[in-house]
Amino acid sequence: MLPISYPDVYSNILYAISGFSIPIHLFGGYCILFKTPLVMKSVKWTLFNLHFWSAALDILLSLLAQPFLCSPFLAGFPLGILKFAPTDVLVLVLKTVFMLVPVSIISMFENRYFILFVENRPRRCWRYLRYPFLIINYLFGITYFIPIFLNVPSDQENARRILFNMYPDACEYVSDKNLVFVVDIGDIAWSKIRENALTFLLLSEIIVLAVVLRVKMSRALKTAISGDTLRMQKKFLRALNIQIAIPILLFFAPAATGILTSQQTSNEQLEHNLFVITTSFHGVLSTILMIYLQKCYRDVFIGLFGCRKPDLAINTVVLPSIRFSIA
């Protein structure tokens, strides 16, 4: 078995990731809050909302909690700097933030759709439906794990006994099995169905919003007059495609892998640890791509760390009633 399966090695890798990612998250947040140009002000706060929850998930996984998952049961223990905090509370916070990341992605796409195609058209019904839509999504993300949290076994010694009787190889690389905290020993299949259903719902919403936004923008392209305008719009669409790929490849794919491996035998420590490590990279990779793709943030980076002066011009293109900021 690879060394990454051992708690100490796994923890040190996550600490190294946090040391790399936290400065990047701080720089990304600084760019959004203080270097976002006026032409992009309509997406500033939804972009920061996404950045905040992505960074929070990264920091929870790589620094604060460092969850060491043990078995098909929802069980394990924290290795991070908050390892002395109540484990059930850490799990609740981690699960909630985990779901708020895709919810914030939905908010970002919905905001772009509203600003571009609804805001200046008062008869569109989405103007009134968007608030219940967003509120329900956030309620799902915040409350879906509360029933499990309220049913955490009070007798942890008995819960560990049940766990290790069913899966003797669980946490085989942990010397002190008393560290293991069992969050749920109930119907694991039902818990997975609930989690899979919510994950599928959120992913479906992201895809639908992204497709609708892309189709409407493609139609708007037909009104473009100059070749330069068309070229800049295609550049914007390419950046949008990458933004769509980020949550699917860096968030939902690891999540799906974790769900599948957690339903196998208990001797899957390597897969559990790789899942956490991979997911802890989600936010920092998104931040790096954001800085690279958005010209205003890229210029800030080049101005601070590069060898040439940044181009302060912001490429924009104007369609009827629509103003775009081009990365």
Score class of each variant (00 low, 15 high):
T261D: 11
T257M: 14
F252S: 07
V284L: 00
V300N: 02
Q294I: 09
R298H: 07
F251W: 11
Q264C: 13
S280K: 01
T279P: 04
L304D: 08
L260F: 15
L250T: 07
F281C: 10
Y297D: 00
H272E: 11
H272Q: 11
D299W: 05
L293G: 02
T257K: 12
T265S: 15
T287F: 01
N267K: 13
F252Y: 11
P254G: 05
S280I: 00
Q269M: 11
V300S: 10
C296T: 07
I291H: 01
S286E: 02
F301N: 01
L293H: 07
V300P: 01
C296N: 11
A256H: 12
L270I: 13
L304G: 02
Q294M: 10
R298Y: 04
I248V: 14
K295Y: 05
L289Y: 03
L304R: 11
L289S: 04
L270K: 10
L270H: 07
H282R: 08
T278E: 10
S286F: 11
L293D: 07
S286T: 13
Q263W: 13
T257C: 13
M290D: 00
S286N: 10
A256M: 15
L250V: 05
F281K: 02
H272G: 04
G258F: 14
N267D: 15
I302S: 06
A253L: 15
V284P: 04
T257N: 14
T279G: 05
E271H: 12
Y292T: 03
F251T: 08
L289E: 05
L304F: 08
V276K: 09
S286K: 05
M290Q: 02
Q264S: 15
E271G: 10
P254E: 06
A255Y: 14
